[in-house]
Design a protein around this nucleic acid. Structure first.
Lengths: 194, 194, 194, 194
DNA sequence: TATGAATGAGTATTCATTCAT
DNA sequence: AATGAATGAATACTCATTCAT
């Protein structure tokens, strides 16, 4: 909806507290009171912003992973491509928002941890396990590897949607991604002797 | 100072806007008005929180790096140990805070980008270059590698100081670090044929 | 408007600083926040109080003077009647207010000096010049005469709207006016030998 | 005392409410807390400012009037000279202050009305009565004449100590006084036929 | 369904006053 | 006597929320 999109942009840019519903309404091209026809209150709108947008994206990734049959290395690249997309879209504002407001919305933090982070980690662990199973990767403990896999791109995402907007320092996240995949594949390559 | 410490804890937990100066005063064990004897206003206090604490920590890292003479691999571990320390201390709240408030305090974001991020990246690039020079690492472009190096630990830090506080999901960041260093050293190992 | 009238009464009685906007709202029969729908802040309301009310009154005097054709003595009485009216109405609170707050609102003082005092003096000087021209008054320098003409009634006005409200001493300003006009007309009468 | 003088200047310039005791202390060259060694609180200081300074001045006028033996016209000039002095000194700030703060300090207003205004009027009425008795003035009711006598100079005084400080419009109060005395003496001159 | 004028609870900030030194 | 750091009551102003239209 118009309102949710406007709210996402403003919440992500200014934070929950500093965003006035009047500005959201203005950005959505409606009047202040109209918001209350669709959302009970500001918190309700905030929850909708976080909940509505991310899960479909996650489902799309899961589906794409599911049908993949080629080398795990390509699967990894496919996964990362989704990250890159999110970095470059408004959707990237959501993780930034959740990080920022976790203290004030613990149940949002929990929801995000359970529905997004846990599911995301499960996807990655499945990919890693697949690679190990197929002998493409050397044996590694998937749980410990996950943050190593997503950390760099998550940082790019948070940078892009917060500090990076106000600094001259810029990262070429596609180049960083190439470097990371290079390191990963070498780092995960099966031991010569194994 | 008492006040700055209390403010850091509350700003990091709740964000700038949602933190009442009365609560800061209460946490610092003083009266509301006393804050104004030391800081012109809430914004001034916020700036002090971000500026005063981080630069000394960075200087300490720089100094430690400077005097190191052993293998670059140890240098990398030394650097990461500082990260781990920050993850585990209150200081870790500052990056979270800056990410959260970048939109409302662009000049803080800029300051952080220039004084913390840029300097931090310079340190890392120097370490990487040293490793390449000494033949310990294969030739890589340091700038593209930096986010790969710090991303995972930064994510651990942000997690610890935001979502992680409200979720059952926990990361063993020391274990993750071991895994990352393992991947890195394999991924950066000189080509056998070189 | 309701708000401006309530504000005038309270500002004049208590001064700018000692008047709470909550009291203004209460006196106007509205809520505190409503004031901010019409005025940007307290100072803005103060300026409106001073600016909106006085100029129309002055314009009315100017118009009345303009159309007068009879003896200058009657013109003088007409002018003074307007003063008496102001003494007896809420409008008299404005000069008192401006005198009181000149130090804190220099631009209000300037506005009042330029738009009210200067214009008022011009009116009076025109009346005096007319009287001299028509041979009804002996030649006098109008500029030096103005304060002599308005001083007594201004004092009555300030008294009425400040000290007089809290003292048993009362002035019959209409009687004082008669005395003053008597003195003036004798004092301005053409020299017998001229 | 140093403190009272500093307080008079500031109270007169800014009003009671807008004057900070810290500024008074600063202007008096002492520390904030020291004021409380001499005055119970801010109101007490305000009362002292109004009470201490004016009565001696009034007594001096009364004494000067008492010993005068010449023509009443000179007595009038003598009286007016005291007014001029007050216009030109810091003391002139007191009437302005009392007019401004009458609403918030009714008992100060009463004190001023009873001790200053009433006594001042008595002096003037005595002078007028003397003039009438000695056949220098035509018979007039003194009470009604008083505001006519003091009004112009009081206005000059209030102007000088409030609006006039912030406006380019200036009055030559000595010239105005000459004009007024001229008008008064002509206006009070005994009827030719009497 | 949509509006926007009105509300009033909530917070940053000021400054008279205190009191240990 | 003199200080000035600390206090906390008091007030301007904001903005989520309501509701008559």
């Amino acid at each position: 909806m118009e309102i949710v999109a406007a709210a996402l942009a403003l919440f992500a840019a200014r934070g929950y507290g500093a965003t006035k519903l009047e500005d959201v309404a203005c950005a959505a091209g409606i009047a202040k009171g109209t918001i209350y026809l669709y959302f009970a209150n500001k918190e309700d709108l905030f929850r909708a912003v976080v909940r509505q947008e991310l899960l479909p994206a996650l489902a799309r990734i899961e589906a794409a992973i599911e049908v993949h049959t080629g080398p795990t290395q390509d699967l990894l690249r496919l996964l990362m491509a989704h990250f890159v997309q999110m970095i470059e879209s408004e959707l990237g504002g959501i993780p930034k928002l959740v990080v920022s407001e976790a203290g004030n919305f613990p149940e949002i933090a929990q929801f995000y941890a359970d529905e997004v982070v846990a599911r995301g980690m499960a996807i990655i662990e499945r990919i890693v396990a697949r690679g190990v199973d197929r002998g493409e990767f050397r044996p590694v403990e998937a749980a410990r590897l996950t943050p190593v896999l997503v950390g760099p791109m998550l940082c790019m995402l948070l940078w892009r949607h917060s500090i990076g907007r106000h600094s001259a320092i810029g990262f070429d996240h596609r180049a960083v991604l190439e470097t990371q995949i290079d390191i990963l594949l070498r780092g995960l390559a099966p031991e010569p002797g194994a």
